[in-house]
Amino acid sequence: MNHRGLRRGVSNLMVGLVTGVVLVALLPLAFILVNLALQGAGSLSLDFFTRTPAPAGESGGGVVHAIVGTLIIVGAASAIGLPVGLAAGIYCAEYPASRLTWTTRFVADVLNGTPSIVVGVFAWAWIVATQRHFSALAGSAALAILMIPMVLRTTEEMIKLVPSSLREAALALGYPRWRTSLSIVVRTTLPGIVTGSLLAVARIAGETAPLLFTALGSQYLSFRPDQPMAALPLTVFTYATGPYEEWHRYAWASALVLILVVLVLSVGARLAIRRRFDFHG
């Protein structure tokens, strides 16, 4: 038996298997993207990005209200969720032995596993029900609650990857503890933290269930966070479940726009961070 031939054969077999598995993992993603582009791109036009929906039964119109709504709702959710999640993540990484850290971590893990619709019900009970009307802010609050545990855990894990020798080097140079944390440790792992935060933003941008009974959705362009507001996932939901053929096409197009918005946000943020913190190796 040719030993080398056997080994080469086994090697090729394994490489083939691994490549196959990678393709299987990529297939759904490719399928979704291609399908979205095929079904949705045809309905995209300048009107689609600049106009509000036409009245039911008429054709034409766009989803600018939902694009603006998604940007406002997700922006407000990030404004609440990112600072809280980042700060809590830094705390957990810096004080791993504290009782508060243990509790925070436990709560975050439970929250991470909570279905988003439950968080939506929670926001409805605490904000919508007490204020007696739906509002974009209630939606942002629900999304922020979903966001915090994600940001917290990725931030903590990223910071833990920084070798403790770097922390010690800063302290031995006379750095105070807080500056060691922020300008050495967090700064070193910033690209990772940004990536984690972007993933969290992207995740909540697509959430539909918590918005159904908080932001509710709207047919009009609105900038008032205390009023019901449209959002792309809600638009997809409404159009997809509606009775008209044209609505279904709009649902595909809205879904495509949602993905584009998320893509633009994350690529933009990543480029900005890379330009600002360009370092090698």
Partner: peptide, 13 residues
């Protein structure tokens, strides 16, 4: 009282 460690620890950023 400064200190140098076993492994080089330049600040990578």
């Amino acid at each position: 009282v400064g200190m140098v460690f076993q492994r080089p620890t330049p600040f990578p950023t």
